[in-house]
Amino acid sequence: MNKFSDSVPESALPLPASHAMFDGTIAMSSGSLRPEKDEWLQEQLVPGLKLIVVDRGELLCDLPGSGRQHITGPCVCAVWNQQEGESRQRFEPGRQLDYTTIALTPAAVASHIDSEFQQQLEASFQSRRFSGPRLLVLEASATIKSLHAQVATCPMQGLSRALFLSGKALEIMAHALDSLISRPAPEASALRLSNSDIDKLHLARKLLAERMLNPPSLAELALSVGFNTRKLTVGFRRQFGESVFEYLQNLRLDTAWRMLTEGEVSVSTAAYSVGYTPAHFSVAFRKKFGVSPKSLRG
């Protein structure tokens, strides 16, 4: 059975590796810190990718290769590390920091993230220019903040709790990774889109709409329109103002809205028709439109 930490001692650091899920290559931890002392604390870094959602609070992080950074929540910290090492962290004494961490071992990265996606991550972290661990701090989207809140307030116990939190870990990971690869790299500002490139981006959006229930992967979509995945993700956000993932989610919810307001369909039917389970559909629908889907059925 999967285990997750709901709280940690005040002097502890968020170390998710002891709470493994799936095949032991992905781990999750969630809790709060309220240190009493103003001191630097050491944390052992292990190879892999770690995502830390800082919902509330602040800290200083001193990471070899990335320098010292002041981090204030809400945000998402992404650490990409390919070798053993350590970092130092200093928390504000007496101030609570709420967090959720998800860690992927190198085996998880290799088995769950295809090679082209890994290349995009390396480009985002500029791994070829810098050795050692790399830290990026991203804005926490409304979706990620909502997922963190669901993790922190999960009322379930036992196996139901483990399954629920496993699902939320994957959702957080998906949104955070989407933000990472969509984040403009330093060279992205120089990206020029020709008229032909723009036509390809519109074709990519059309293909997503046609395959809404069974969308292609980023690599498949890029190949279909003659782009590499990096140019697709950066170009798509630049042209349409949202990532590929965000476009697909908004398309599904907008389609469901029309189904509920223009036709005689149930909430469950609308949910399954756009690729959601009813429970996840209701949460996503309310988040986007501010009303529950059930309220549209009178």
Rank of each mutant, 00 (worst) to 15 (best):
S7W: 13
F125D: 11
G48Q: 00
R128K: 15
P47E: 09
G24M: 05
P74V: 01
T25W: 04
S11M: 10
Q44R: 14
P106R: 03
Q44G: 11
L60P: 02
F125R: 08
L13T: 03
L33E: 00
F125P: 12
I113W: 02
H112C: 11
G132L: 14
E116V: 06
L51F: 15
E122R: 13
G65P: 08
G67E: 06
H148T: 04
V8T: 11
A17K: 13
Q69D: 08
A27N: 13
P93G: 02
P47R: 10
G132E: 13
A20W: 08
E84T: 12
L138Y: 15
A103K: 14
A123F: 12
R88K: 10
E43Q: 14
L104T: 00
L41D: 08
D62V: 05
S127H: 12
P14M: 02
D38Q: 00
P93C: 01
D23R: 01
V46P: 08
T72Y: 03
L63E: 07
L138D: 12
R68P: 05
G67N: 07
D98H: 08
E43R: 14
A12K: 05
Y99W: 01
A17Y: 14
L135N: 13
R90H: 03
L63K: 08
G67I: 08
A78T: 10
Q69P: 09
L121Y: 05
E10K: 09
P74H: 02
L59I: 03
D98I: 06
P93N: 02
E122L: 08
Q83Y: 14
I144K: 06
G24N: 05
Q119P: 07
Q118T: 01
S87W: 11
R68S: 06
D23M: 00
Q96E: 03
F22E: 06
Q82Y: 15
V79T: 14
I144F: 04
T72K: 05
G94L: 01
L63T: 09
